[in-house]
Amino acid sequence: MNLSTTLSPARGSAAPRAKGRRARDPLPGFRLALGATLLWLGLIVVLPLAALAVRPWQEGASAMLAALNDGRMFAALRVSFQSAVIAAILDLPLGLILAWALVRTRLPGRRVIDALIDLPFAIPTAVTGITLATLYSPQGWLGAPLSRLGISVAYSVTGIVAALMFVGLPFIVRSVEPVLRDLPPELEEAATLLGARPWQIVARVLTPVLLPALISGFGLAFARGIGEYGSVIFIAGNQPFRSEIAPLLVVVRLQEFDYAGATSIAFILLVASSACLAAVAMLRKRAARGLVAEGAA
């Protein structure tokens, strides 16, 4: 009784004020926030992409047709996508183990490792490229013993994969880490008390729960791998049809002042990457839905 008498005058006075505004605005400043977001997104993302989509057609369809008939371009696309997929897949187990070690164990020097993981984000990619090329060159620290075993990393697709693994690893670790941190360690303890071996815990307990995060990380590493330029070109050897990546071909075309051709390749690269990322996103959604599935509907 008391409550309603104290509330009713307030309600009465609030009603006319609310009339002027949109009645169902749940947040103050909603329009401002939406406007800022759209403007921001438009300027930073949509505008350049639109320019990219328009540019190839400005001199007629011939540039695009030429690009679509260019075997060298398709070879470059294949090299790019193949190496990006392989590198991202190889990064998955590595990233999972690293994230697990960071979250679950009290490794000495954990903070140093933690900082090191982000380093590929911070180093200029050209520096990464030169470093890796030196390391894997036939005279390098790793290249020399490997070449004695008959494995040549530098100046081949293997080298591209090695470089992409380096830049892609932090994406996996940083995607998995927060999710793993949220998982109660009791899950793993319960599994071990029930007789599960370590690999069974990874396969049956951790991986299914971490799958959406793993797919996210995979998508990010993969996307970065397709677009990666600086760290790859020094180690790849850049032989057309063999170890030439698509972004490099764009640069080659630009150096030939063939802007229409360059943007055509870029546009095709954009469409192909978008399709791949959409597929990854769908996969992740499915995996996430599997976790909250309400029985077999």
């Binding site: 009791e186 899950l187 319960a190 049956r204 299914p208 729960v209 599997g290 976790l291």
Partner: peptide
């Protein structure tokens, strides 16, 4: 366990 630690994906 206190939090039961059930496997939520199973």
């Amino acid at each position: 366990f206190q939090n039961y630690a059930l496997f939520r994906h199973l």
